[in-house]
């Protein structure tokens, strides 16, 4: 029995808890992508840079707060700085809509044109980020490091294996839950939220019903940018802020949004966790896990790892391709894509 418990705790510590945190970050990112797709009907390739940009502004705000001695320990100061990052990023994203996308919306351009325009926006944002904060890593997590550490856990349970919960992981999970609940209340209960869903469902009929398309589009950008900043900051707090890493996150985020069904908020969340757990569980080395469960002479020779960590993108990609081949509309999309 102890062996079983130890195995579960081990898996939780190295795969399930980090996977849940990563999944939350992906889900928030995918929500931003899916909202823009639902309302503006294009895949926003600048979303990764939006996350990075928001995290960067939040880092500057964090540094400012830290220099003034403001702290909300044990929570990271970054949380306090988050609203500033959101406000600035929302302003930038709304400007990008006004100066770039609005024109093509007016012209009713093909979605590919929007996609190419988003590449232009991506370049501008990537350049600004590299120019302002530089290409180096930044660590801005402060406050308590652990909610409980491996040693605490062992002392309490008396198990051989330990389980740690980092403050950033708990913050990620709680923030993600708060965001998702707030978003669904907004979309499901408020007049504005419903008008947004109506516009996503049937643009012409929404306009006919007196729903202001410009307002819906603005709100979609505001929500998308807010979620992007939160996702970016949580990822940065949890790992560390690398300006370039968000470009790489684009693939798992898109995969999450497509697996769930582009345009479906529920799908984006489920997709985020599917991708995250698949990545973590496929690249986890099960050697020690099996050690608790099977007799020594049954043990496999190697690490018992299905795939090297360096190929975690391949996991996201394979899931993406399988989705596109088997069910291109995704899990939660009733409409034909």
């Amino acid at each position: 029995m102890d062996g079983f418990l130890n195995a579960i705790v081990l898996l939780a510590n190295f795969a399930l808890v980090p996977g849940a945190a990563y999944g939350s970050q992906l889900a928030l990112g995918a929500l931003g992508v899916t909202l823009i797709f639902a309302v503006l009907r294009f895949s926003n390739f600048a979303h990764g840079e939006t996350m990075s940009f928001g995290a960067m502004i939040t880092i500057f705000a964090t540094w400012a707060l830290q220099s003034w001695g403001v702290s909300i320990a044990p929570l990271p100061t970054g949380l306090l700085a988050l609203p500033i990052g959101i406000i600035v990023t929302v302003a930038v994203v709304l400007a990008s809509d006004k100066f770039v996308y609005a024109y093509y919306r007016e012209k009713r351009s093909d979605q590919v044109i929007f996609l190419i325009a988003s590449i232009g926006v991506m370049f501008v944002m990537a350049g600004l980020i590299r120019f302002i904060i530089g290409p180096d890593d930044q660590i801005f997590a402060d406050g308590a490091r652990f909610v409980f550490s491996v040693r605490d856990f062992r002392a309490v349970t008396g198990l051989e294996e330990g389980l740690a919960l980092k403050t950033t992981q708990l913050v990620t999970l709680v923030t993600a839950i708060v965001c998702v609940v707030a978003l669904f209340l907004f979309l499901g209960k408020t007049r504005t939220g419903k008008s947004m869903r109506a516009y996503a469902d049937n643009e012409d009929l929404a306009t006919l019903s007196g729903i202001d398309a410009g307002r819906v589009v603005r709100i979609a950008w505001i929500l998308s940018a807010t979620l992007a900043v939160i996702a970016g900051v949580l990822y940065g707090l949890d790992k560390s802020y690398k300006p370039f890493v968000f470009q790489e996150l684009l693939l798992p985020i898109f995969a999450a949004a497509i697996v769930g069904g582009l345009g479906s908020p529920v799908g984006a969340i489920v997709g985020g966790y599917i991708i995250a757990f698949a990545e973590v569980l496929v690249t986890y080395a099960y050697k020690r896990f099996l050690g608790h469960l099977v007799p020594p002479d049954w043990m496999p020779d190697g690490l018992a790892q299905l795939m090297g960590t360096e190929y975690k993108f391949a996991v996201a990609f394979v899931i993406l391709v399988l989705t596109l081949l088997i069910r291109p509309t995704g899990l939660f999309n009733k409409r034909a894509a």
């Binding site: 007049r191 008008s195 469902d201 049937n202 009929l205 007196g210």
Partner: peptide, 18 residues
């Protein structure tokens, strides 16, 4: 395309009264 397919009947009516 005269309804909002993913929204409930009641929400469709609400949108009519937008």
């Amino acid at each position: 395309k005269n309804v909002f397919p993913s929204m409930s009947v009641e929400e469709n009516l609400e949108m009519g009264a937008f």
